[in-house]
Write a protein that binds this DNA or RNA. Sequence first.
DNA 1: CGCTTTATTGAGGGCGGTCAAAGAGCGTGG
DNA 2: CCACGCTCTTTGACCGCCCTCAATAAAGCG
Lengths: 222, 222
Amino acid sequence: MSLAYEFRTNAPSAAIMSANIGDIGDLLRRTGVPMNFGKDEEVYGQDEEADLVYRVIDGAVRTTRVLSDGRRQIGDFYLKGDIFGLETGPRHRFSAEAVRNSQILVVKASALKSAGADLERLDHMTTRRELDRALEHVLLLGRKTAHERVASFLLDLVHKAKAPIIDLPMGRQDIADYLGLTIETVSRMLSLLQSNRIVSFCATRQFRVINLDGLMDLAEQG
Amino acid sequence: MSLAYEFRTNAPSAAIMSANIGDIGDLLRRTGVPMNFGKDEEVYGQDEEADLVYRVIDGAVRTTRVLSDGRRQIGDFYLKGDIFGLETGPRHRFSAEAVRNSQILVVKASALKSAGADLERLDHMTTRRELDRALEHVLLLGRKTAHERVASFLLDLVHKAKAPIIDLPMGRQDIADYLGLTIETVSRMLSLLQSNRIVSFCATRQFRVINLDGLMDLAEQG
DNA sequence: CGCTTTATTGAGGGCGGTCAAAGAGCGTGG
DNA sequence: CCACGCTCTTTGACCGCCCTCAATAAAGCG
């Protein structure tokens, strides 16, 4: 167990964290194997043992859970650079699939550990981040309108991307299953946001923000 | 040693975990201070620093988040024996309030650590458990009907309680805000479950299960 | 008991779902 | 380069689940 681990850091520990993640990222690259996954291909299944760590090199991944009658819920999306698969305990609660053709770095957790990585710390940080996002997701699904959900979703992508033009790696059905809506409602809300001059779609899966304040207001971040 | 407060877990590695938690629980009792909170009294606020650990001695606690216009979402409930406040990172994302008059053990995390507790492990396990529950909550809010949500909620209580007659520590409004519904819909679904001979309410806040298989079917656990 | 809070039940409305069809995007092959 | 076929997306019309509003009933609590 690493003595370097601190339970509660008072200062915003972004610098420390990114430094650690940088090291881990380097280690991941050296220890892991890059693999290619085709669109909709499964990375891991629900209830599978979770002894691998994954990092998106290129593409996008979704975690999903399906009810017996086919209703599907997406837990989260993972984009380039994101680490996943480490966050759900000994067994996966959701399965993971490639949203589109993707390259993913696959690392054995045990190998990482023996290579000297502070896996526990990485795991802890990742889990915490997942929990934060899951709770935000709960608020969105429990109490936001369709309009607000779609606005929140786009705003989240904006924060991740930090570029003027933002790509949507996933289709409308995936967005719907993330937001607890139907594909038609998502489409309608996107059209509405566009006609209200909040965002502008240059292509079906590419947009830019016209009115950021308006988007933030609609997202109702609480 | 009297294990008056058992840590609740559905996780696979229950034996290992409860052994560790048993030790921690003992340490908590010796290091912590029991405090009384009145109904609806705040235990901690949103965005407050999180350097305390809490354990419900008696009563019940809810975590809540409120949108600017008053819409409220409850993150989770914590009942007798449950540990909370440790799960949301350096700052709380939700605030915590007593559902009804409650006695809560309050422990300084730093004190726990210097007393030799494996706080890291406790923190990690708690966070992981929270994430599991949050993801289940996401599925419920995103893809289940009102009928299924209420059934899932009751089933969850049944699993926690393991007693023939189960108490509801919270009112209908709290249930509604947990399930992303209105108080009227919750009330209607409870009436429906009762007229379908799935459960039976001996009092407004006390029920027993008549048809467990039926309840599980309705809960659509995926 | 009487007062307040909480829960139930009913009637009606609206947001988002369902069903359907047309349009756009896109790779493949002529 | 366009035609073709497939998938994905958009848009429209209608419907139903759940919300809203309202009134009553029950439960706490002094």
